[in-house]
Design a protein around this nucleic acid. Structure first.
Lengths: 222, 222, 222, 222
DNA sequence: AATGAATGAGTCTTCATTCAT
DNA sequence: GATGAATGAAGACTCATTCAT
């Protein structure tokens, strides 16, 4: 309602304008939250709208339908994930186990601890209803992620740090617990806080330690 | 259809009767399938009905509402999981790493490879809309499962087979990849078959091998 | 279930047979009760059935549809009313005011105090949905009743007992409070017993006294 | 439709606004009509909607359920009845018989001849399904009405105009025929117009005359 | 004759979407 | 651009009715 501010106002653009430009982002964030909380089908456009602080009709000024809003949410958050994943690309000089820890913590900071962590739940849930995403997701997230991890493993093997393990399966074994942490956070974890890991970072470091050194006593392994 | 059986047939109850007794099970199976495919909110009762080969109204003869049907589906499949988990309780004599492999493969056979694997997606998705499940699930599945795994790890440590690792986090690190496999199977995996593991059993065995011996070359670890 | 009783049974016909003959009556009674309680549309055939102590399907052995059941209920109870009204036809020798009291009390005994009193609520409620009943009811109940009352008033006037009043309106003024008593009994009266007349017979006698002698002091009237 | 009015027009709110404020009233009126015609259970929300000139969904913008709509209809029309009843409260100077006639005709004008007359049928029909109404109706309508009539009778008795009659029963005997007139109007009377009173006002005046002076010849009474 | 499992047309209710303001 | 009243297609649920037993 207060579209104009008196003379002395800061050089800031008119509030409405600023608003307008921020809207799509605000709506996507609101939508991700709502969709992750309730599930896509059970989410109401009005909930998304009111969480973004606008009225029902306004959402349609930016996204032509609920379905398109979902697609935009996924595309947007996938790009985010990927972009962030891209940063991880390493010219890391040190040992590979160190690199692994750095990458994992960085990923958790940028994804696991942000709203973006909800995207995985959304994908798990909705990919069957929107099969176009499967391909999209495979190409944009799974594949780059897999390449990154396989390269990392290969680096370790090549440098004589790692045993020669099956790259593919090991890559998944590395990333799956971290994805589960994201899923957990937005499902069981959102209900009864005490369940599962109290300290995700410690969990991740432990997971990596296990992946590196295994359960078995050193002398015990063949 | 088989209403008449030859003379020597067993006391053969009337077909209708047999039907009535089998219905709840048939409906629960159909419901699990449909709910896992489409998500709870997007599933139509009529779809459940027709997948079970009955009409809309019939479902309501056995379950008073869609919500109660979901609850029954979860309860039913959880009980199964739990019961099967109970069977796993081991008087296994051999080494703990062997036990770990046996348990994992058995779980995969009984859960991962059956329809019951869909229940995890359902829980991830719906637990926030039915918070009563969080408690239920925590008490009936998570807790027993956690105890089982912690006991197993403790066994390995006590016998000098395993390093002294954090029990809690390690238990989750053990099970999370296997849960992700279930989730994957009913999401991305259901769309583009080629993604992720072609051979889940191999994946599991590799995962366990990693958990046991780690990535690092034996001599390399500190 | 106990259809046959051992040898020494009384000469009574087989229970099933007796049952079968009584069924239509039992069903009509049950239906009247249920329809009056819940209203026709809100009444379930199953409620009627279970109140009559039979199963859903059995009702259809006697009445082809819910609508026909309603019609039968109304026809049956109307005939009853009329037949009983016919008995009232009087060769009463005494004064007309006496006759009026006798008729009213007799009607109340036979109708107001029995289940038949519910029929008026049913007619008030359903006549617009089944307009065929309007005619039926007018011809079978209203008209005979009106004739009876008009004749009674005429008798009083002819004998010099009554003032020459408008026959038609006066007839209605006589009967309306008694019908309201029936309606009340099955509506407000069924909820909070204390409302309205505790003693219907006293109410009726007072009503008739008023109709005969009026509120005004005798000397006061013109 | 009349969105623009000539220059001098009043501050004329936008049509949509005017509509929104009028809607609840329009819906309540439509609902009363439909419910009275068909009975509550047999009435479809869509019928109410279309009679009010809106679509199905619109009704739910104003009333959360069919049941709440019924409650609102009854509350609304009861308040009306009560308010109108309050107006009847009299500082009437003249004789009590005159007062009685004035009150009766006024009530008939304001209730009997308006849509409000339908409320009694609705109450008779639905009070057993919504027992909360019994109490409400007893407190808000029956009790005030009873007090009014008893006071009126007492006035007549105190002024030596009336015989000392039982107040309670006589009050009911006074009002019952007028209620029956309302019920009749929306039941049998709505089907075959010729049945019962052609001229309700004449009927009421005759009823009151009877209540005042009785049927009996003046000299005849004991 | 009686049962009660099964059916599916019919209603209530929700919510994505539109559009006059 | 923003709003929110209105719409109506879609889906949960009920219940009159059927029919195999």
């Amino acid at each position: 309602m207060l579209t104009s501010t008196p003379a002395v106002a800061p050089p800031a653009e008119p509030a409405r304008k600023r608003r307008k430009e921020a809207r799509p982002q605000e709506l996507l964030d609101a939508a991700l939250e709502v969709f992750v909380e309730r599930g896509f089908a059970a989410s109401k456009m009005e909930d998304v709208a009111s969480r973004a602080g606008v009225s029902k009709g306004t959402v349609y000024l930016y996204f032509p339908s609920k379905e398109e809003l979902l697609k935009a949410v996924i595309r947007h958050n996938l790009s985010l994930t990927i972009a962030q994943g891209g940063d991880l690309a390493a010219q890391f000089p040190g040992p590979t186990d160190e690199l692994l820890r750095v990458l994992a913590m960085s990923w958790w900071e940028r994804v696991g601890e942000t709203q973006a962590s909800g995207i995985f739940k959304l994908i798990i849930t909705e990919v069957r209803n929107f099969p176009e995403f499967a391909q999209f997701y495979a190409a944009e997230v799974i594949e780059p992620g897999r390449q990154l991890l396989k390269a990392l493993l290969q680096r370790g093997i090549d440098r004589g740090e790692f045993r020669p393990v099956p790259l593919e399966d090991t890559a998944y074994a590395l990333i799956f617990p971290m994805l589960m942490l994201c899923l957990h956070k937005h499902s069981v974890g959102a209900c009864s806080g005490d369940i599962a890991t109290q300290d995700p970072r410690a969990f991740i470091l432990n997971h990596i330690d296990l992946m590196l050194h295994g359960l078995c006593r050193t002398g015990t392994s063949p």
